[in-house]
Design a binder for these strands. Structure first.
Length: 667
DNA sequence: GTCACTGATCACATT
DNA sequence: GATCAGTGAC
């Protein structure tokens, strides 16, 4: 078929009447944001100011104006966020909203880079490295470059991965990151630079991309290739970016490049809620937006619909401690409510008991369990509480912390599927070969080398002559993979099934708790059922893994009413009737590591602000005292500096009293 | 070369 | 609790 290009029409005939009464259901600022469809627009949206609502209605409005859903691109922080917005938009209007392109920057990059593989200089069959994988690659290279055989200690792989990632995300050199954040490794800089170069080359050679590469290669593609840029820009005529305060420079550049031909960009964000600075997020992006997009219309959403006035009073006090002047003042119509409270517990156990007891009372009072959340700075802060909740039979789901996808047995199974998708994948080969008895790093490397040089992909295994010590297990692996190569059109779950069958004896030998892990594998297989394409499945597992942590993944399927335990980072954008923030203890929150640096301290403050502003009706801060910190050899016993010394009428202090004491006092 | 020990060291947040 | 370097037995 021949395509005959018509001159571009920006607008179709505007329909006379809209099916949605926008003017009646939105406030003035929201209405303005929703109905400004052309040109750049910056929406500063305070916590609880109806940001999701605004984006949702704007999607509906665009479609009602006759714009093709496929030409709208909605970039969000998590896939869940975009799905939720599009689902709501579909309820407002109709199913057309589901055709809007939505997802994270990373998933968009993944899709685009595979589609434009030729132009991007990276073949499309690449595998994505999650954090653990990229640490493993670094570890391999560190061994090969003999950087770990030194008299002094070389940084650990996790630290190295952090350094490299930060350098990429901030767009600065490895040297600068080390000087700023890890001065103790200053003398390792030459080696770290050497290793970094090797890491880059290795990834390219073996078709591996880490999270940062996805963004960097996308940006480079858009920058270097005018045709691709213009094509993508014309396809995505209306761009919306959520959580703009947590984008980094690369992402801001990508937005600029994508909007090349039209400047139709709406970004939504709140500078007070930037909490990903450690990953290169730059809330300066918000301030700079009007400079990058001249003619930007600025809209501020300042009416808060979430919290009561007492809660808002407190969050205002918190954010007022920020050095950077904040850009908006929130107000609410919900005047009445209980003041937030600060609770001191004499130890961690008592903190947990308080939370549990209060939750039980709230449930009595009719607050549904899934309207209550317990938030904390770090994943491990909830361990003791989890024990207490289990004892009291309170069902909960934990978000953030240690991930299902990062457990060894899940990664083992995925690695087998990854070598099928990309036979050059060095880490995955290494991983699956090391599972075999009598095969260590040396032998694994030798086998992998032979497979690569055979140019027969996975079939190269047949050219390997195994030593008698490991021949039997090696042949089992070879036959299993061979068989899968012969049947390239098997359903994803069928491939998974065969891998799991192969893997199960290994699992049972390696792990004492294999029955539990075996259940995880069954669950993994059930996830595979939803896919008809291995590549898509593997990408999703790297980019959008199930968010719940270990042990909870299956529970989510049948428990409908559960308490939420979450890191504050993972609680972004959410809200609950009652919020507990635990471990608001100076030294834990702010974290002891942040006290050196004013910028990091400021980010901790914003984090506290995010935590507090999740609450609709009730808000409690709890902290245990007499906590010994091994790192500094200090006893921590003061409440967080962010909530200390606030007057009683804004933040009440509660002291926990035993029944005995009450009896005595009342007598 | 592999494997199963040891003891010293160090821990945040996430796509 | 995980990671990592070092050790000695096969």
């Amino acid at each position: 078929m021949k395509h005959y290009p018509l001159k571009e029409t920006t607008f179709q005939a505007k329909s006379e009447a809209f099916s949605i009464p926008y003017e009646d259901v939105l406030n003035t600022a929201q209405y303005e944001a929703v109905t400004t469809l052309q040109g750049p627009i910056l929406v500063i949206a305070g916590a609880g100011s109806g940001k999701t609502r605004t984006v949702t209605y704007r999607v509906a409005r665009l479609i009602e104006e006759g714009i093709a859903p496929e030409s709208i691109l909605l970039l969000t922080f998590t896939r869940k966020a975009s799905q939720e917005m599009l689902r709501r938009a579909a309820t407002l209007l109709d199913h057309r909203c589901q055709n809007v392109r939505g997802g994270t920057f990373h998933s968009f990059a993944n899709f685009t880079l595979r589609k434009y593989a030729q132009e991007s200089g990276f073949e499309s069959g690449f595998n994505i490295l999650d954090r653990v994988d990229s640490e493993d690659v670094i570890n391999l290279l560190r061994g090969w470059l003999k950087l770990n055989v030194k008299d002094r200690r070389f940084p650990r792989k996790k630290t190295i991965a952090n350094i490299y990632s930060k350098a990429m995300n901030k767009g600065v050199s490895v040297e600068d990151v080390v000087f700023d954040d890890y001065p103790n490794f200053a003398r390792d800089i030459p080696d770290l630079i050497r290793l970094h170069e090797a890491y880059g080359i290795h990834k390219q050679k073996h078709l591996l991309m880490d999270y940062d590469d996805l963004l960097v290669y996308l940006k480079t593609l858009l920058q270097a290739n005018k045709q691709v840029r213009e094509r993508l820009s014309r396809v995505h005529r209306y761009i919306m970016v959520d959580e703009y305060q947590d984008t980094n420079m690369i992402q801001a550049d990508i937005v600029r490049l994508l909007a090349d031909t039209h400047d139709n960009v709406m970004v939504v964000g709140d500078d007070s809620q930037c909490i990903y600075g450690f990953r290169g997020a730059n809330f300066g992006n918000i301030m700079d937006f009007p400079d990058i997009f001249p003619g930007t219309k600025l809209v501020k959403l300042e009416e808060n619909y979430r919290s009561t006035q007492p809660i808002l009073d407190l969050t205002n006090v918190i954010i007022n401690k920020a050095q950077r002047k904040y850009t908006k003042v929130l107000f609410t119509q919900k005047k009445d409510g209980a003041p937030p409270a600060l609770i001191m517990a004499k130890d961690e156990r008592m903190q947990s008991e308080f939370v549990v007891q209060r939750i039980l009372e709230l449930r009595e009072e009719g607050v549904p369990l899934d309207e209550i959340a317990v938030l904390f700075r770090s994943g491990f802060h909830s361990f003791d509480l989890e024990i207490e909740l289990n004892r009291s039979n309170i069902p909960f789901i934990k978000v953030g912390g240690f991930k299902f996808m990062e457990t060894a047995h899940i990664k083992d199974v995925l690695a087998h599927m990854k070598v099928l998708a990309n036979p050059k994948d060095s880490v995955s080969w290494h991983r699956i070969l090391l599972l075999l008895e009598k095969i260590g790093p040396k032998t694994a490397n030798e086998i992998f080398r032979q497979v690569l040089s055979s140019a027969k992909d996975v079939g190269g295994l047949t050219t390997v002559r195994p030593k008698p010590g490991y021949a039997k297990s090696f042949e089992r692996l070879r036959d299993m993979l061979e068989d899968l190569v012969q049947n390239p059109f098997l359903p994803v779950a069928e491939i998974g099934e065969r891998v799991v069958d192969y893997y199960r004896p290994i699992l049972e030998k390696r792990f004492d708790n294999h029955p539990k892990r075996s259940k995880d594998l069954v669950h993994l297989l059930s996830i595979m059922e939803r896919y008809n394409n291995v590549e898509k499945f593997l990408s999703d597992m790297a980019l959008e893994p199930p968010n719940a942590s270990v042990g909870n993944v299956m529970a989510t399927d049948y428990e409908d009413e559960q308490l939420v335990l979450s890191t504050i980072h993972s609680a972004k954008g959410l809200e609950w009737h009652t919020v507990f923030v635990i471990w608001t203890l100076e030294g834990r929150f702010p974290s002891i590591y942040a006290t050196r640096n004013a910028d990091e301290m400021e980010e901790e403050l914003r984090l506290m602000y995010v935590a507090a502003s999740r609450a609709k009706e009730l808000l409690y801060f709890a902290y245990p005292i007499n906590i010994y910190d091994r790192g500094t050899a200090m006893v921590l016993c003061r409440p967080s500096r962010f909530i200390e010394g606030i007057s009683e009428d804004i933040l009440e202090s509660w002291s926990l009293t035993s029944q005995e004491q009450i009896d005595y006092l009342e007598w």
